[in-house]
Simulated scan of single mutants.
Amino acid sequence: MDDDAKLYAIGEVARRTGLSVSAIRFYSDAGVVAPAAHTASGHRLYDVHAIARLEFVSTLRELDAGLEDVRSLLDGRVTLTDLATAHLARLEQHARRTRVRLAVLRTIVKQETEAGQVILMHKLVAMSDDERDRLIDEFWNEATEGVDGDDAFFAMLRSHRPVLPDDPSAEQLEAWIELGNLVRDGDFRRAVRDQLRETFATAGASVMLSAEMLGEFDRGGAILQDAHDAQLAGVPSDSPRAGEIATRYVEFLGRVSGDDDTPEFRRKVARDLVRVEELHRESIEEAATSPDPHTRYQSLVATINGTADEYASFMPYAWLRAAVDPSP
């Protein structure tokens, strides 16, 4: 007999599909997969097409598709792509809710949270982008109030703010919960304000933190980024491209310090780059546990924005040092 015409008893269908007999009966009674025929005594018989249909239905159900969705697909009312798209959206929404719950629960465990704070945590994770921006603006308004400093520096501080992605990870949500709690805390706001006052009270702070100097730092940062990109691209440190970047960096530091591009100044720049690399490594290690309020703020923002790994891997210093001063 041709395989297409061969009929199988429900027990054999169960063995072939891995479904239980009761499940096969359920799909038959629900009108999802009807038997091809019945025996004289009323037992159901299935052909290979019905078996294939049952396996397909089983797969869809394992993917958590609803029975009505499956029926609509098999009846031709929706396409498989339409069904998958709608189901994927539901699963992604469920996954986001799960990540939110995980973040809140992890924070409760880590911080030994009191019952009253749980409501605040839920409000924090449910905030819109505009609400988060307002909270950060309120924080910086209070933290900078009464501080005699440069507006350009304050604008730079405000620009480094959390931007929670549409589909945040549990780690990003946990960081936002911690940051949201911190920036609402009056003691933290006062600590940041006191730190800013101490910073601007330091000798030379008004010059080093002026708009002109901040612009210079931006230009220096752009040169370091070029060095980082060249290093990642495999550009040798003794190549003409590396020499051009090194010269720009030395000239940038010379403008700041008033030094000319001499062999002695280059050796000093190379030595300083060793220390810069050490400070970079130390800042990565200390960021998560630093008692310094602004450092903790920056660390949490970097986690929320997904730039923490990028900062940790930013290490062009040895490459640039060799380009600036190729002598041992």
Rank of each mutant, 00 (worst) to 15 (best):
R16V: 13
P165A: 05
D133K: 06
D69F: 01
T39N: 10
P328G: 09
T247D: 11
M315L: 14
R184H: 09
L83Q: 11
V183N: 01
G116I: 04
L253N: 12
A191W: 07
S128L: 04
V276C: 00
A288C: 03
L157M: 14
T202Q: 13
L209T: 01
R106Q: 07
V250W: 07
D75C: 07
S22Q: 12
T262L: 10
D137W: 04
E285R: 13
S290K: 00
D137A: 10
R321P: 00
I177Q: 00
I284H: 08
D4A: 05
H43I: 04
H43C: 04
V192Y: 04
E212C: 03
G18L: 14
D185Y: 06
A302R: 09
A175W: 02
D166S: 14
R197L: 06
E131M: 05
Q231W: 06
H228C: 03
K268W: 14
N141L: 09
R161W: 05
E310G: 06
Q231K: 12
T295S: 10
R271P: 00
S20F: 07
F252M: 13
W176I: 07
G149S: 08
E251C: 09
R267V: 02
N305P: 01
L179I: 09
A143L: 05
L74E: 03
E278N: 06
R248H: 10
A9W: 11
L88R: 15
R219E: 15
R321K: 12
